[in-house]
Every structure is written in structure tokens, then in C-alpha cells.
Design a protein around this nucleic acid. Structure first.
Lengths: 253, 253
DNA sequence: ACCTGAACACCGTTCAAGT
DNA sequence: ACCTGAACACCGTTCAAGT
């Protein structure tokens, strides 16, 4: 009966010296987070999964935050890999395709959203990746005639809208039930004159597909108007028009 | 020397029966959070501040989440109190004034932002407040000629943009330093053709004032275009035009 | 009916070892 | 150089009392 002196949770055996690596930890962390959630990723649970002492992780990453930063960098690279927009679209179709893709990715891969949108970009490498991706889009806009500042503002508008939509959606479904704006006529709140006329109740977060499409189209409409109104002696505008003329000439030949 | 048998952290005296109230707890929580931050608000620290046993709080609120929901309701009411937009502005100026106010409030009162934007609305009362506020704006849009669905989508676009901007800004300054997109010509990344031409480096979060103003104006531009294009036999459009004609006639008299 | 401390199961992180 | 458990200071929450 009393032959086994250690009925404790099994005192794990010591691992060999080179038996863990930063890459392995990262891999395990990413898997754990994508199987469950980023919230469920804790140092003890990660250690358990890797069959390693908790403190061993701290030899490779100074803190959990550093680990998450590196994880976010990974996510950023995967994100980049998945976003491939044909380069020859007109600027407005290019933009809507680009940001629609963003949104789809964020909705389908909650982990990517949590790492990229819900955390500020940490490592220099992640920043570099983001900057290069953004610049590629800006080049399309500049080629279409937008001055650099306007192109940057246009990108910012759609980026904040898209990331905002994704972030608010994530925050909302942490709180399980999305409350609806009450629709239809009812007595308790007779003041909802317009909301009660809607064809269907709208979740208060307002991050649905219809809202996103409407917003995207509205911003593009506004950008088209702005592009038309640019003075013709803007260097970018001139360059873009000369470019277009040259292409027309080439096509005519 | 050994006369005091309890050098412990002072075993607080038992409080009288009616000596705490839900309101008092809420007040203390709000103060603690606004003096430090929502993150700093923990049940033990709150109890300490109120000079109450930690567990006593649980008699009034089933959980911390429930307490935060009630706190958010409070924040919502204060938010409403502070937003007062003159009702007689043209619809587009009304909208820009309304959402500019929102943004200002969120930036100045980080606690309000954390409670309202970074948490989904919890209590029915908070939802009611939000719905009534939204409906008032929708009425302005409908009066201007937007059909209810379009008015709702217009609101959603600007709301997501504004809340998104505030939320992303909050998330970013949790991570202390906002990294800049490198600007100016430099060798390591010769591919940043447009970003390097900007007059100044832009933080990657893109939640600055200039970006917000640009986005707001762009959306309004898009909405104006959409309003112009509405078919003249839309009931809302007809109603709005008849209304305008009546006002003109009244003014002419 | 209201207030309480002790205790539980979790965190992230540090320290002082072991090999 | 790498891996480790014990320990610390925090959480939110529950339980079994006290008055």
C-alpha cells in the first residue's frame, strides 16, 4: 500500500540540454492559440503542452509579451502570404478587393485578427512587413493620380474602417450575445421612429457584411470625387494623365 | 516586546450592516478606474479602497463583469449628457459635428472609451440609451431624404470608423511607443517609394487627427453623392423635398 | 440580511539552484 | 549553456461561517 512514496502529479523527468528551441516554443504557442484562443494561451499551459518546465520558456523569451510580439510577427508574415491582389485592376477596384480580403481574413482567422489588429505591431520586422505592404498599395494610388499625402490619407481611412470593423466585431463576440436594436413597433420605447422601420434588427456593433460593403463603397465614392476635383497641374495628376495617354497611344497602334 | 500578538496587516474591524451600498461600490470603482485606469481596477484593490472585505462586493455584484457592465451603463449616461448637438444643422454638418464630438470625448476620457467602445454594451438600459441616441441621428438623415436603411448604413459607416479609430488608438498606446513608418530616403528599404515621400512620418495605427478628418470628409462626400442619386420617387426623398418647398414658401412670405 | 477571512485555482515572473 | 521547481505577488471567485 505504501510502496509508492510519490503519488504527486508525476515529477517530470529533466529534459536534455538542446531539447527545446525558440522555434518549437513559437510553434506550440501558435498551435495552442489557434486550437483554443489567444486568451487561453498561458505560460503554464504552454509549458505543459511542450512538456517543459514553465521557467524554461523564459530562457528563450524574456516575457510573455515578447513571445506574443514574435507570434504577431509570424502572423503578419502569414497574412502577407495570403493577400495577393492582381496588380492591374483600376485603383478603386484594387482598393475594394484589398480591404475586402483583409476583412475576410480577419473574420475567418480570429487568431490573426487578435495578434495583428488587437495588438500594436511590436517587432521592427513586423513593422517592415506592414510598411512594405502599405507602400505597394500607395503606389497604385499615386499611379492613379493621388498625391502621396492624399494616397496615405485614403489608405488610412479604409484601413481604420476595416481594422476597426474587425476589432469591434472581435470585442463584441467576446461578450457572447450581440444585443439587437429592438425593431418593430412596441410600447416601451415609442421614440425609436427610424429604427423601428428597419426591415430587420441590426446588431448594435454594426460590423456586419452589409454595413461593411456600404462603408467601403461610400468611401470609394468620396475618393473618386476627390480625385476628379484635383487641380490639373498637380504633378501626380499630370503624370497619371500622361501615362494614360501614352497607354492609349500604344493601344491604338 | 511580545505584548502585541498581532503585528499582521491590521485585521480590519467588522463593518455595520447597512454600511455599504451598490451605489457606493460603483462610485469607488469609477473613481479608482478614472484615477488610475480600468486595468488597475481589481476586486481586492477596490475592496481596500472602500475599506471593505473583498467578498462583500460579491453580495452586491455577482461578478466583476457585472460590476463593469453597470459601470459602462453609468459611462453611457455621462456620455449622453455630454453630447449635445444643435438640431438645426444641415444633415452633413450635423453628422460631422456629432462624430467629431464622439472622437473628442473618447480621446479625452480614456475611461469612457474603455467602458463604451472596448466592451460590448451589456445592460438593457445601456442598449436603450444607445438606441435612442442613434435614432435621433437617423431622424435627421431621414428628414434629409435618406431612406431608413440607407440612413442606418450611413450611421454604421461613420460609427465604425469613429469607434474603430478610438479603439485602435487605445490599443496602440497600451503598447507605449507608437512605431513610425520610416520616412525619408534610406538604404535598407528602398522599396518604400511613396512612404518615403511623405512630408512627415505617419504612425502605423493611422488614428491621428488628420486621418480622422480626412476620413470623415470622404465619407460625407460619398453620402452626398448617394443622396443626389436617389430616385426622385423615393418616399423619403419626396417627403424631404416637399418639406423643403414648404419651408421655402414660409420663408418667402 | 449583510459582512467576513480562509482557501482555491489560476496568472506572469524571479530566484537560486541543478546538470 | 540550458533546464528546473519552489516561491512570490497578484488575480477572480467560492465557501462556510460569523453577527
Amino acid at each position: 500500500m505504501s510502496s509508492t512514496p510519490t503519488p504527486q502529479p508525476a515529477p517530470r523527468k529533466r529534459r536534455a540540454r538542446g531539447s527545446i528551441s525558440a522555434a518549437e516554443i513559437l510553434e506550440g504557442a501558435y498551435e495552442l492559440a489557434s486550437e483554443e484562443s489567444l486568451e487561453a494561451l498561458s505560460m503554464p499551459r504552454l509549458a505543459q503542452r511542450l512538456d517543459v518546465g514553465v521557467t524554461s520558456i523564459y530562457w528563450y523569451f524574456r516575457s510573455k509579451d515578447e513571445l506574443l510580439d514574435t507570434l504577431a510577427e509570424r502572423a503578419m508574415a502569414e497574412f502577407d502570404r495570403r493577400i495577393e491582389i492582381p496588380d492591374d485592376l483600376p485603383w478603386d477596384e484594387y482598393l475594394s478587393s484589398y480591404f475586402r480580403h483583409h476583412r475576410r481574413l480577419y473574420r475567418e482567422h480570429e487568431l490573426l485578427c487578435d495578434l495583428i489588429v488587437l495588438r500594436s505591431p511590436g517587432t521592427p520586422e513586423a513593422i517592415r512587413l506592414a510598411a512594405e505592404r502599405i507602400d505597394r498599395v500607395l503606389q497604385v494610388l499615386v499611379r492613379a493620380g493621388f498625391p502621396p499625402e492624399a494616397a496615405m490619407n485614403a489608405y488610412a481611412t479604409l484601413s481604420v474602417f476595416t481594422r476597426g470593423s474587425a476589432a469591434l466585431a472581435r470585442i463584441a463576440d467576446d461578450g457572447a450575445t450581440v444585443p439587437d436594436v429592438p425593431a418593430g413597433p412596441f410600447e416601451e420605447a415609442p421614440r425609436l421612429r427610424v429604427l423601428s422601420q428597419l426591415d430587420r434588427p441590426r446588431p448594435l456593433v454594426m460590423t456586419g457584411d452589409e454595413e461593411f460593403e456600404f462603408g467601403l463603397e461610400t468611401v470609394l465614392r468620396g475618393l473618386r470625387a476627390q480625385l476628379r476635383e484635383l487641380p490639373a497641374d498637380e504633378p501626380c495628376v499630370r503624370a497619371a494623365r500622361e501615362q494614360a495617354a501614352a497607354e492609349d497611344a500604344a493601344a491604338a497602334r
